[in-house]
């Protein structure tokens, strides 16, 4: 049994992060993540192939319409647009995927939440795992794309893969955990989310380079964790200078989202069952 030899329930106790309790439930977190991943690919013909196919097809469409028709380029003559777009989409899918699964994680776990106790942060935390796994599948295909387009990435680029991923996941989690708590009370979130994600795709430098954003707006653009993460990993990969100030702003954006998201989540948590 989970090792909790004494439980104390106190009305009106103040919300706290309670990392210690979360840690004691780490095995349940793994089971949650494992279940989500298993279920995602059950009874699909392509299985994990979807993780590759999605950015692949999107890259094709974006290359055709934005690059060829609208004339948006990667911002450098040496970087083929499909490679540029695929790298961005890999990270973008991780961001939008996490945001959507995290936001819906509590409502999806409704049956469990009303029947059994566990830290309510477990479902949103586990929901992130799925998108990260997808990210690594998409990453394998990226190697093939690099070879096909004969692009040799910079070594520093490889070093930026992980920090950018962590940044983008933290940002998505922070925003998602706020939406998840909001979703418990207002199901409007469910309807608004696809729309929000779509808007975010266009204000984030995914299909265009951040240099396309006018200088005076760039500081706000960088507050979006996805913007800093994608711009930094791209710059590193294609041997361009990384805008560390911009990256720092994105980290700040992610921290603000996490702190606010967790604060709201913990504050409303004890009423979840009453309103879900």
């Amino acid at each position: 049994m989970r090792n909790q030899s004494a439980v104390s329930i106190q009305a009106g106790r103040r919300a706290s992060l309670n990392i210690k309790e979360l840690w004691s439930y780490r095995e349940l977190f793994l089971f949650f993540a494992w279940r989500d991943i298993k279920v995602r690919y059950k009874q699909t013909a392509l299985g994990a192939g979807w993780a590759i196919l999605q950015p692949f097809l999107a890259t094709g469409v974006f290359t055709l319409f934005f690059n060829r028709v609208a004339g948006i380029s990667s911002g450098s003559a040496t970087i083929p647009y499909p490679v540029f777009a695929y790298l961005g989409l890999m990270y973008w899918n991780c961001f939008s995927g996490s945001l959507s699964t995290v936001s819906n994680s509590l409502v999806s776990a409704q049956g469990l939440i009303t029947k059994i106790y566990f830290p309510r942060l477990i479902p949103p935390l586990a929901a992130v795992a799925l998108s990260v796994v997808d990210f690594f599948f998409a990453g394998v295909a990226f190697i093939a794309i690099l070879i096909a387009f004969k692009v040799q990435p910079d070594i520093l680029g490889l070093l930026m893969i992980l920090p950018s991923l962590v940044l983008i996941v933290l940002g998505a989690f922070g925003l998602g955990v706020f939406f998840a708590a909001l979703n418990v009370k207002y199901r409007d979130v469910r309807s608004a989310l696809p729309f929000i994600t779509q808007i975010l795709l266009f204000v984030t430098p995914v299909i265009y380079p951040i240099s396309l954003i006018p200088e005076r707006f760039r500081i706000y653009a960088y507050l979006n964790p996805a913007a800093g993460a994608i711009s930094a990993v791209r710059a590193a990969f294609f041997d361009q200078p990384i805008n560390w100030a911009g990256f720092g702003l994105s980290v700040l954006g992610a921290v603000i989202m996490i702190v606010f998201g967790l604060w709201y989540f913990r504050r409303t948590e004890k009423n979840f069952v009453d309103v879900i």
Partner: peptide, 9 residues
């Protein structure tokens, strides 16, 4: 209101 103490798993 109130409180509960549970001793044991």
């Amino acid at each position: 209101e109130g409180s509960i103490k549970i001793r044991g798993r």
